[in-house]
């Protein structure tokens, strides 16, 4: 038992230090394209702004949507931005480039390096700037909503962060499953539009769904949990049921995602040419 714990800890330390190396390299790389970076931030803020305008127009006509008022919804919309930024800082970009890596043979190099291929893929292009505008704007929206909600409590922030990480695990698992198909199609762009819509639809409250839709957006395309669960905690709307559901979905989906991924990897190494 102790040996296993030790081994686990060592692996963890090794991958954390690998993550640090990759992050430094990527930051150096991004520094070269500083101009792009400024434009990307402006664009992100613009897109988030359109989302805010969208909801502002809706809330000019209605009081609540699925029980969420405007300020609560802003926490929700902001949380999506924060989740996306952290995802780009940890794993997202690699999946977008998987098809290209396979075509250019760079993925083959990942298979021969003494490092888990999925971690290698995730870290290869961790990007601070890709979604930075969204992250900053997201934080601002969360702060804005939080400040206008009398029921929001400071003490809920640690729990909010925990559930944010849980959402990232769900996001990662979904990416793994969708991108397993890249090994057959050798194109990642279109597959990842599905992932894009998945995260894009996370900004609506989970309460809008009914019946089959509710099950679908919980278990198949679990976008209704990604932002709703953390935002519900911060805005004092959460219940134990929702939290347990989110944790459970994350656990199941992650094991399933890894299984599908490894199986596809096996297919790749028996079928690519």
């Amino acid at each position: 038992m102790k040996r296993w714990v030790n081994k686990g800890a060592r692996t963890m330390v090794r991958y954390l230090s690998l993550y640090r190396s990759f992050l430094t390299h990527n930051l150096k790389n991004e520094m070269i394209y500083r101009a792009n970076f400024a434009i990307a931030v402006v664009m992100d803020i613009f897109f988030m702004g359109v989302n805010v305008v969208f909801f502002a127009i809706l809330y000019a006509n209605v009081e609540t949507i699925g029980g969420w008022n405007f300020h609560q919804t802003m926490v929700l919309v902001g949380s999506v931005g924060v989740v996306r930024e952290i995802a780009y800082l940890t794993f997202r970009q690699g999946f977008l480039e998987l098809g290209e890596y396979i075509r250019t043979g760079r993925f083959d190099a990942m298979l021969t390096a003494p490092m888990a291929p999925n971690a290698h893929l995730a870290f290869r292009h961790v990007s601070l700037t890709e979604s930075l505008g969204e992250g900053l704007m997201g934080l601002a929206l969360v702060g804005y909503g939080f400040a206008h909600l009398p029921e929001a409590a400071w003490s809920s922030i640690p729990f909010y962060l925990v559930m944010l990480i849980n959402s990232l695990l769900i996001y990662y698992a979904f990416c793994l499953m969708i991108n397993s198909a890249v090994f057959w199609l050798v194109k990642s762009q279109e597959l990842n539009t599905v992932v894009y819509y998945f995260i894009d639809t996370a900004r609506y409250p989970r309460e809008i769904y009914r019946g089959m839709g509710k099950a679908f957006f919980t278990f198949i395309v679990p976008s209704s949990l990604i932002a709703t669960t953390p935002a519900a905690i911060l805005t004092g709307r959460a219940n134990g049921e929702l939290v347990i559901l989110s944790l459970g979905v994350a656990a199941v989906l992650l094991s399933l995602g890894l299984a599908v991924w490894n199986w596809s990897l096996q297919h790749y190494s028996s079928a690519s040419s």
Partner: peptide, 17 residues
């Protein structure tokens, strides 16, 4: 499929409103 997903979510949104 992604596009269908987007629209279906919006339909739920209008329905909820």
């Amino acid at each position: 499929l992604g596009n269908v997903l987007r629209v279906v979510v919006l339909l739920y949104l209008w329905n909820a409103i």
